[in-house]
Nucleic acid binder design. Sequence first.
DNA 1: AAACAGGACTCAGAAACCTCATT
DNA 2: AAATGAGGTTTCTGAGTCCTGTT
Length: 781
Amino acid sequence: MDVDSPQANGMKRKGRKSNENKASYREDSESEDMPLSKRRRTSSKPVKPESDSESDVPLAKKPSAKDVNSLSKQKEKFEKRAEKEAKAIRKDAPKKVKQETPKGNTKKQTPSASAKAKKAVVKDEEVDEDEDEEYRWWENVQQGDGTKKWATLEHNGVVFPPDYEPLPKDVKFYYDGNPIDLHPEAEEVATFYGSMLHSTVNVENPTFNKNFFEDFQGYIKKTGGAKNAKTGDKVDIKSFEKCNFKHIFEWFDAEREKKKALPAADKKAAKAEKDKTEAPYQYCMWDGRKQKVGNFRVEPPALFRGRGEHPKTGRVKKRVFPEQITINIGKDATVPAPPEGHKWKEVKHDQEGTWLAMWQENINGAYKYVMLAANSDVKGQSDYKKFEKARELKKHIDHIRKDYQKNLRAEKMVDRQMASAIYLIDRLALRAGNEKGEDEAETVGCCSLKYENITLEPPNHVIFDFLGKDSIRFYDKVEVDPQVFKNLKIFKKAPKGRGDDVFDRLTTSGLNKHLQQYMTGLTAKVFRTYNASWTMANLLKDIKATGNVAEKVKIFNDANRRVAILCNHKRTVAASHENTMEKMTERINGLVYQQWRCKQMMLELDSKIKKKKGAEYFALPSQLDEEWVRKHQADLVAEQREKIQKKFDKDNEKRIAEGEKKMSGKELDERLEAVDELQKKFKKENKTKKVEPEGRGPSVEKLEQNIDKITQRIETMKVQSEDKEANKEVALGTSKINYIDPRLSVVFSKKFDVPIERLFSKTLREKFDWAIKSVDDDWEF
DNA sequence: AAACAGGACTCAGAAACCTCATT
DNA sequence: AAATGAGGTTTCTGAGTCCTGTT
C-alpha cells in the first residue's frame, strides 16, 4: 500500500495540538470505549451521568441493531436494482429523456400561450370555488438559470411582537428571600426565565443558567440596579442560587390557566380578532399571484434555546426593532410602513432573493428571513427540483458506486478519503459535515467525524457514535466493506488521537466539487434525498394490495419508518410512554387470564380433554403468576364496583333532576351484589383450582371459539404494543416532509385506493399539491 | 487558488395547539 | 355530556447545507 503517511499531513485546518499525550496514540486505544457521555448529558435524551459504562449502550440499542441489519440486507437488494435501472436508463436514454420533459412543453412557449394552455386545463377540471385561477407551474417548468425569482413582489411586511407588559405590582422576582424591584427592561428578562421554569432541559442546564444570569446581571446594571421592594435599599444581585423566579412562574402559570378556562366563545372571538389584524400579512403578491407567507411574525425576545451543548444557550435574544429589518420588495410596490416613529434598516429590490424581510439575530449573528409558506409556488418549485435532482442521480449511481469502490484503494490519501467518505454518505445517509465554529455545539457529519466517533471491530465492523445535527446521537454498529475498514484504520493511525478529524484531507466543498464531476448539481445532501426516496419506492414496490385501508396505511407508515431510521430521525420519548406500555401489557395479561379461565372451564366440561390437549395447554401462562392473578381479580372486582357505583350516582342525579326521589342505599347494595358474587366466585376458584363454565349452554366448542377470538385480540394488541415500543423514538414527520418524494405517496394512494388524507395532513396536501395533481398511478421515482 | 466570510436556503425536533375518542 | 387525555397537526426557531464573492 502506498498511501501517504498521515504524519505527512502537518497542516491541519484548525490549529489543534497533535503531538501531545502520546500515550493515547497506541493502536489498541482504538478499541477503547470512547463515550460521548459528558457531552450527552444535556442532549435531548438525558443520560444519567454514571450510566455511560459500555454495557448499557449496546444493550439499549440491541433491538434496533437487528432491524438495521435486515434493513442493510434489503438495501443491498435495492442497490442492485438501482444499478440495473441506471443501466436501463442509459440504454434507452433518448426515449426516456423525451418522456421526462414535462408534457406539453414544446420548446419555447410564449408566456401568453402557456397561460392560455393553463386556463384550458383549469377549465375542464372543476375549480375550487375560492381559488379563481391556479397556476400549474409543474406542467411548464422553467428551464432558466433560476437566478431571477420574481418580476413583481408586493407585501405588507412583518408583525412585531407586543410590547412588554410589566408584571402586576404584587408579582416580584425574589432575591435572598426578598421581593425585588427591577426596571421593566430587567424585569422582562426575569420573566423570560421565570416563565419557563417547567422547561427542565434548559433550567437544569448549568450553561443555560450561567449565560442567562450573566445577561440578567448586565440588564440590572444597565438599568440602574435592583432594589428591595419593601425597604427600597439597593440590592446587589450576585448569586444565581439566591434568585427565585417562582412567583413569576406561578403568575404566568395562572395566566395560562385563566386563558385556557375562558369560555369557548371568548376564545373564538379572540382568535378571530387576531386573525383579522394579521390578515394583511398572511399573503403577498408574487408575480401577480397571491401567495401565502410563512413566518411573518418577528421572533419575540426570549432566552436563546440552543440545542445540545451550545455554549451560548440561555443568552438573551433581544427584541428586534424595525431599524434592524431589511425589507425586500418590488420596485413598484408600496413599501410597508414601519411602526410609528421608526424606520426600516433598508429597503431592497433583490429579485434573486425569495425573502420578504430579513434581520440579524444578536446571539450568533444568524440571519433570519421571512419567506413564503411551504405551499407557495416558489417553495413547491424548489421542492420539485430537489426531487428531480435526486431522480437524476439514479442514472449515475452505479458509476459513482463503482468509482468509489475502486478508489477505496487509491494511492493518494485524498482520493482514498474521498472514496471512503462518499461510501459512508451513500451507505449510512450521513450529512456532509461542515466545519463548525468555537461558539457552537460540537456536532459532526461525515467530513467532520472525529477519531473518537469511530470504533473499529475486526474483522470489518465499525461502531459509529457521534452527535449529529441538533445534537441527536447517531449510534450504529455497521458491517462495512473490508477495504473501508482498512482505510478507516489508516485514517485513525497515530499521531492522530481524540479530537482529530478522521478525514483530515477533506472539506465539504472539496467533496461536493468532486461530486459535481459525476453530475451537475450533485452534492452530499442529494444522496440523502435519493436514498430515502429510493428506499421508500422499493419498499412500496414490494407491497401486495391486501387488507383494508387501515392496514394499508400501516404498511405505508412502516415503510416511512424504515426511511426515518435510515435518516436517523429521532424524537424524545414521550413522558407518558412507559405508562402507556405498562397499561398495554396489563391489558394483554388480562386477556391471557381470560383465556386461561376458558381453558379451565373446558376441563370441567370434558374430563378427557386434558389428555387430548396435553397438560401444558391448561397450565397458567408463564407471564402470569398466583400473585398477579390475585391482584388482577381484585382489580376486576374493584373496577366493576366502581362502575356500578357511578351508574347508581348518575341515575340518582337524573332522578333528582326529574323531581323523583333518590334511590335508597339498599338499591345500591342490591346492585352491588353482582360484585360480591364475582368476588366469591374468584375466591372459590382460587381455593378449588377449578373454574365453573359460564354462559348459556357452555360447550367445549363454544369455549374454543372464544379462545380463538381472544388469541386474535391478544395478537393484535401485541403487535400494537411492539409497534409502539419500536416507534417510541423514531420521528416519521421529517422524512415525510423533506425526503420522500411525495409523488411516491400519491401513487401509493391511487394504486391501493387509500385516500390521500390518510397519508398527508391538510398542510402537507397543500405543500404537495404539485405532486397530487401531477402524477397518475404508474409514475415511478 | 484555497480559504474564508457572508448569505440564503433546506431541514430539524420541541412546544403549542387542536381534535377526537373515551369515560 | 363535560372532562380528560392521548395523539395528531401546526408553529416556531435553531441547525445544518451549500453557494458566492473576496482576498
